[in-house]
């Protein structure tokens, strides 16, 4: 079994942040994936969506759902990340004042993704964009 789901995200569009994670959650529930794994996956996908909305011009979420795991690739066209190690540090954020006032941009996004996934890789080119790939194995 393998299901591919693709979602587009527009930069700055917070009203649609959560569409991909919400849809993925529904599909995983229908497939009777254990709820603990679904909870982890939902956190990781949501944070990745918010990162695209907060920082990039546009992006795409592609989820490959198999019997044993889910692999998610979030690629964006955006400013890229200069120092990935720094960006991973809890509390580090480059979010705008407006984004912070909404309660986003607390510098917890990437560490939330890391905590809730089994494999995570981030590739980024400054001035071009970022590709975040992660995998969650079900329990």
């Amino acid at each position: 079994m393998s299901i591919e789901l693709v979602f587009h995200i527009a930069g700055g569009d917070f009203s649609n942040a959560g569409k991909a994670s919400s849809h993925i959650k529904k599909v995983l529930k229908q497939l009777n994936i254990d709820s603990k794994s679904i909870k982890r996956i939902v956190v990781a996908v949501y944070e990745a969506e918010v990162n695209v909305a907060a920082h990039a011009f546009s992006g795409q979420v592609t989820a490959q759902i198999t019997e044993h795991h889910i692999e998610v690739v979030v690629s964006d066209q955006g400013p890229g990340i200069e120092n990935i190690e720094q960006a991973m540090q809890p509390g580090y954020s480059t979010a705008s004042k407006e984004v912070r006032e909404m309660g986003f941009g607390a510098g917890m996004g990437l560490s939330n993704i890391q905590k809730n996934t089994d494999e995570l890789s981030i590739e980024s080119r400054v001035g071009e964009g970022t590709i975040v790939t992660f995998r969650c194995n079900y329990l």
Partner: peptide
Amino acid sequence: LLSDVMGNAAENEVWITLQTHQNVVA
């Protein structure tokens, strides 16, 4: 802080906040 709730709140909890935009519902 939305990521704090995302990372740490648990099912069936009541969320007390001053954020009023639609992302809280999401």
